[in-house]
Design a binder for these strands. Sequence first.
DNA 1: TTCTTATTTCCTGCTT
DNA 2: TAAGCAGGAAATAAGA
Length: 379
Amino acid sequence: MSSLCLSSVLTRANLTMYQTGIPDVVPQQPSVLPSINTLQISTPVYSSNMSSQWYRHINPHYWTAEHVLEWISDHVESTKFDASTLSLAYCTMDGPALCQMSRDQMIGVFGSQLGPHLHQSLQEHKTKYELQSLSVPELDETCQLLDSFLDNLNFPLLSTIRIGQSEEAVSKSEFDYRDDYDLTSLTMGDTEYLSDNQSDSEYSSSSNSGMFGFPNLDSPESGSGESDPEFSYPPISKVNIKTEKGESRLKRPRGRPPKLSREHSSSIYDSSKKNKHAPRGTHLWEFIRDILIHPEKNQGLMKWEDRREGVFKFLKSEAVAQMWGQKKKNSSMTYEKLSRAMRYYYKREILERVDGRRLVYKFGKNSSGWKIEEMSMGI
DNA sequence: TTCTTATTTCCTGCTT
DNA sequence: TAAGCAGGAAATAAGA
């Protein structure tokens, strides 16, 4: 393996093919799995859309080897780097291993052209997630510190600043799926001062809005999505409620988040509309199952406790929930919500209870596709 | 258009 | 005390 070098400039498609032999993210029915030869031709849009920059939504510390490969592939493409000198042995590390590398180590491994580029990109991803993982009090404190600093400089306070150009623009940007927000591209050029009323209601409530209007995404370890402003909702759909302490906060409306506009929807939703039946992997239990039956793609997220009995355990529950949220284009998914959906499967006997064991579930008689016999038979 | 399904969200109470 | 579990209630998107 270590002697195997990439013979030509890497593309996302052939990288994915090399590593897994199957399309990324949403596994296919074994019986209808396209062959490796036909896959690239028959499912180019699907493959590229579904695998495209998935890693961007995941904390680099949670990246699997595949995410790392995807990330490297993107940079190879964007820098027009000649990948013929790149050994695949260096592309098999996962996120935690990658995060431990220094800039010099990256240059040593990836060369003076690609190395610094990758290092900078990694730092940006890490910074983004470190900011997102700040707790609400931490964000409040940071905002206050910055406020006093800006106040001394006669700058407008953060609580009165909105990033963007107009109400309309803000509304639209909140409704868009935010794949591409990036702290490094943030400038203060397009600021707008809010009226007192506005700042009092929506934007000055720093406990509800991320700094600079960025999402205050829950960290992987946080349990609740309540403090997390949902991008998918326009502000008007939120309900202002009073908490026990008398402070007002925005409350997400119940139910499934509104569907994203067509231009932002992924191909899986498009294809599910065309097809009479939802594609394999659409349901939560299938998503979970597919993580379990492709351990090489999801190292450390879940594990079998008893493969024959279908007993499994979440190892990184919030990370799995975030992945599910990404799949469903719902940035506020948490393990708490995911587990509620899991519990509904008990009634349908897709899952069975495992009493007394946290994070442990068992596939029920109405689930399929996880048994060793089924898999070896290609069912 | 209505109904059904599969979640998603919020909540309270309990257990570990 | 925090995290996880259990399950009711209400809501929504999407398919039938």
